[in-house]
Design a protein around this nucleic acid. Sequence first.
DNA 1: CCTTCATTTCGGCAAACGCCGAAATATACA
DNA 2: TGTATATTTCGGCGTTTGCCGAAATGAAGG
Lengths: 115, 115
Amino acid sequence: MTDMVKLFKALADPSRVRILKMLQVRPLCVCEIREILDLAVSTVSQHLAILRDAGFIYDVKENKWVNYYLHRQNQDKAVQALLQLVQDPALFGDEIHRLDADRVHRVDRNQLCRL
Amino acid sequence: MTDMVKLFKALADPSRVRILKMLQVRPLCVCEIREILDLAVSTVSQHLAILRDAGFIYDVKENKWVNYYLHRQNQDKAVQALLQLVQDPALFGDEIHRLDADRVHRVDRNQLCRL
DNA sequence: CCTTCATTTCGGCAAACGCCGAAATATACA
DNA sequence: TGTATATTTCGGCGTTTGCCGAAATGAAGG
């Protein structure tokens, strides 16, 4: 499979697009994302692996948590272009993404992390 | 499913991306595409339906054939942007697509259409 | 009207995908 | 060292996807 199709596959899922949009607000740990998406932790972890594998995000382990960041500096031009596109609210503005962004502001990992 | 994910799903298949790249060279009928992809006619027809449903292509019936065109004027900005991206050889240049383009120049529907 | 032929639709099958809970891993800290 | 906790990996399950051949559709020409 060509690399470009791998990128599109990574974006071809509602939850994964939501994750990218959420990371636009700020870096998040797995359990924060889990809280907002309301999916099993294992499922979220797999989504994150797919996005990371495609190059859209990267993770940094900090203390107890693994923080996920948008990979804005990825040198792959296709990844850059697609990330740009997904982030553009004029192209891809969806009600659910606005709600998610609000929730990102409110979630506190110290409150909700008792899986 | 949000519309944007529908667009990504349409692009998340090697054959469908190949079709878009081929249509960049010139409009094609189903059996020309079938010849190059080497898939069943019904399969090609389904791929085309998915791409058309997403807004990336449209079809015009002409004589015996249904010609498929890139929908370059689609008013949907997301479709435009993605089509732009896919067509950019600097972002998505693949050997197979170059070969396909060559074959597009050579295929002749009058020769090969005896399914 | 009837045949021809390009295309689409249908039914079915195997592989891929998204989901889960449970087990494994890793990391902090007592 | 031992326990707690955040995350990943594993096995399995139901759904979706991509593929095919066969049947249906639709338009052109005899």
